[in-house]
Design a protein around this nucleic acid. Structure first.
Length: 782
DNA sequence: GTTAGGGTT
């Protein structure tokens, strides 16, 4: 069934126009309440269910294609069963009995069992899919089927199918770049183009040149397979043309060299249909000026005209818009007043990552009111696009906006901007209405606007700071990360900036670049060219003059790379160890890796919401440390430990217990890793907070900012000038140093993010004299 | 005077 079964135009959203053209759902299929009390299905029932999946009919074809091609692209829509079935098909077909090539003096090949890896961008997906497959195979998790995600490895000596996050496989690649444990690597959700998946693409292609036995299956929901196919094409254009000549443009599938498309190819392509209900897509006839107003009208119209069951999911750009729409809807509908002819109530459920877990839970549970007369309206960010699935949704309202974080390498600043979604995202959002029954999707933009959208979002690798990626590649022994096999190359500027940072941190040496930045804010200027062209131009350049010496990873760089942290943070931990407070530094970086530690109750949390928010603010102020945000995080962790890591303490102080648990897990992992480096993680500075601040200065010296009169009135009278790029920023209002009197003269920050304006966050006071003493190469007196 | 979403041997 096609997801976009029909396209129906509706007028600019207006009360009179939408309902008239809407149709009743064709049929009621499935219900989200059915699954709860079902007994555990037997093996036979599983077998029946498997045979109903669209992919089952293609089992032989999938297996044969993987047999004949080292690389296969498998396109399967939602519900095709690809994630659970493909690994089982390949296991049944004997792909795990890999052959270890003869090594050294060993005369003959040794048969050995290798694994099938299936990577996922998200932990929950790896865990739940593995659980499902273990059930289907009638084994316990950790036996034939297992999973590995950070902090949680459920694999054993007998495991042959291993679900894992792409990050875990990437970490494994650091010690085993040829991925020798695996016979087949399946990259699932490849269309999402996560940073880790993209790096794996290049690594696997590289490994395939050495290992003829390594199979890769790229699984994607995107119909455009060309980009993946071309990437894994081993022979390149020349070989391709020769094959076409030999077999003809429309030659049959012959000797495994022709794909189903009839193109000469070393890459096999399989397409599997999905199993989704049809979703009718509605567009606006006119562009909407205010997407919150438009969303409000659309929700009210759907609510008044559509029967239950059928909850509504609205996609918005962020917390602010969600709160505004929640307010508008409750004003218009009344929180528990029935409205319209249908006499139904509305229950509004905000859903975004920073929301307290117990408030998030409302979106997933049945409504508090009677199910027969209460409709849930979920107001979500893109968290509901891929990360979570909500049952019962039959109507999607899509504003077409999303917030996108983007690193600007020429300035070293991150920006967070409201941006139009891509067509693939719009389709993904639409699909959320058709999981259980036919549904409807209302796009609050015009069809021509839809057609003008980008086809797919920009891959993450082109939007992020690459310092950690470049260091990882160097640590793996790739001596030239600029010319790595990127599926989508990052800009030359972004790569150059990463090298510059690594050089400044002492992670690499003898590069063609000199150290970047000094106290005066003067720095090497890297001409900003447009992304891809720059890389291609560089690649095409014939070497002229003496070759530049390539940067080499230093012993310090290897230690930094061994920690699963941003190199700046890892450097901080190692410097803190030299200065006597690694214990506190480990706490700091662990807390920094857990987001949304402090939480604010939703303003719509009932009659005492305002009071709760005041209490939260007071509680948070009581946790603040004088010296800044990083000392505050350390303080919070220590208080939490003193309170025996209790949930009650979290509750009383408006601290997110889940974030604390995550920080604790990260900390435990880091303790192990620094011990492996021969360091003593219990080395603490005790009450001598100056030692910790000195470590912060020494570690975060690339992020120093000094207070000075603002050159632009937009930042107020004073601002903080960042020494690395000479730009001005303000201290973020959430910082404990915001509006501090007297204002600190010299600070380090953990993050700079441009939203309404450039803000530095994670701000702590440092002493300029410490910088001069501890980082003399940058801050020493001339 | 305020922060989309993931993720790491």
């Amino acid at each position: 069934m096609s997801m976009e079964a029909r396209k129906v135009h509706v007028g600019a959203v207006g009360l009179s126009q939408l309902p008239k053209k809407m149709k009743r759902p064709r049929e009621e299929v499935g219900s989200h309440q059915l699954t709860a009390f079902q007994p555990t299905p037997s093996r036979r029932q599983h077998q029946n269910a498997r045979q109903q999946l669209p992919i089952w009919r293609q089992k032989t074809y999938v297996v044969e294609t993987v047999r004949r091609h080292a690389s296969v692209v498998l396109v399967g829509e939602t519900g095709s069963g690809k994630s659970t079935q493909v690994p089982q098909f390949l296991l049944d077909a004997g792909f795990c009995a890999g052959i270890v090539e003869a090594q050294g003096s060993t005369p003959s090949p040794i048969r050995a069992r290798k694994l099938i890896a299936c990577t996922q961008p998200r932990r929950v997906a790896a865990i739940t899919v593995a659980g499902r497959v273990a059930e289907e195979m009638g084994c316990a998790l950790g036996q034939a089927v297992g999973y590995a995600v950070r902090f949680d490895d459920k694999t054993g000596p007998r495991t042959v199918i291993k679900y894992m996050t792409d990050g875990v496989l990437l970490r494994e690649a650091m010690t085993d770049p040829l991925l020798t444990r695996y016979a087949v690597i399946i990259l699932d959700e490849a269309h999402e183009r996560s940073l880790q998946t993209d790096i794996l693409f290049g690594l696997i292609r590289r490994a395939q040149r050495e290992r003829k036995d390594l199979r890769v299956v790229v699984m994607s929901a995107t119909l455009d397979v060309e980009v993946f196919r071309r990437f894994f094409e081993t022979g390149g254009r020349k070989e391709e043309k020769a094959l076409i000549k030999r077999h003809g443009e429309n030659g049959k599938h012959e000797k495994g060299m022709l794909s189903r498309e009839g193109q000469a190819s070393t890459v096999g392509v399989v397409r599997i249909e999905g199993r989704q209900y049809g979703v009718e897509v509605y567009y606006c006839e006119e562009a909407q000026e205010d997407s919150i107003d438009a969303a409000c009208l659309a929700v009210l119209q759907i609510h008044e005209s559509e029967p239950l069951p059928g909850d509504i999911l609205v996609f918005l750009s962020g917390q602010e818009d969600i709160e505004a729409l929640a307010e508008l809807l409750s004003e218009s509908a009344g929180t528990d007043t029935s409205i319209g002819k249908t006499g139904l109530c509305m229950e509004i459920c905000p859903l975004y990552s920073a929301l307290a877990p117990e408030e998030q839970a409302k979106a997933f549970h049945p409504p508090k009111g009677p199910a027969k007369s209460t409709r849930k309206v979920i107001l979500a960010t893109n968290i509901a696009e891929t990360s979570v699935t909500i049952n019962g949704i039959r109507h999607v309202v899509d504003t077409g906006w999303v917030k996108v974080r983007r690193y600007v390498p020429s300035t070293g600043l991150d920006s967070l901007k409201v941006t139009q979604i891509a067509r693939a995202q719009a389709q993904q959002r639409t699909g959320r209405a058709g999981r259980e029954a036919p549904g409807k999707c209302y796009r609050l933009f015009t069809e021509s606007a839809f057609e003008r959208l980008d086809a797919v979002p920009q891959p993450e690798i082109q939007r992020v700071n690459l310092t950690q990626v470049v260091l990882q590649l160097l640590a793996m022994g790739l001596d030239d990360p600029q010319h790595f096999d990127y599926l989508s190359p990052p800009s030359a500027t972004a790569l150059a900036r990463a090298f510059e940072t690594l050089l400044a941190l002492g992670c690499i040496a003898e590069g063609g670049l000199s150290p970047g930045g000094n106290v005066d804010g003067t720095r090497i200027v890297i001409p900003e060219k447009d992304d891809r062209q720059a890389v291609e131009a560089q690649a095409d350049q014939k070497p002229s003059g003496p070759a530049k010496s390539r940067p080499v990873i230093t012993p310090h760089g290897r230690r930094v790379a061994s920690l699963p942290l941003d190199p700046v943070y890892a450097h901080f931990v190692l410097r803190a160890s030299e200065l006597g407070c690694i214990f506190e530094a480990l706490t700091a970086v662990s807390m920094l890796s857990a987001e949304n530690v402090l939480y604010m109750p939703s303003p719509h949390g009932g009659p005492d919401a305002a009071e709760q928010r005041n209490r939260a603010t007071t509680a948070h102020r009581a946790l603040a440390a004088y010296d800044g945000d990083v000392p505050t995080l350390v303080h919070i962790y220590e208080r939490w430990v003193a309170a025996k890591k209790g949930n009650r303490w979290c509750w009383d102080h408006f601290v997110n217990a889940r974030a604390m648990k995550k920080a604790d897990e990260v900390r435990e992992q880091l303790l192990l890793l620094v011990r492996r480096l021969g360091l003593d993680p219990s080395q603490s500075c005790g009450n001598e907070r100056q030692i910790f601040l000195r470590s912060l200065a020494a570690g975060l010296f690339l992020n120093v900012a000094r207070r000075q009169p603002a050159t632009s009135p937009a930042l107020g009278k004073y601002c903080y000038k960042m020494l690395a790029n000479g730009r001005e920023a303000a201290i973020h209002p959430s910082s404990v140093l915001h509006a501090r009197n007297p204002a600190p003269q010299c600070v380090v920050f953990t993050e700079v993010l441009t939203t309404s304006r450039p803000y530095i966050r994670g701000v702590s006071i440092v002493d300029p004299a410490d910088l001069q003493e501890l980082v003399p190469q940058f801050f020493g007196r001339a």
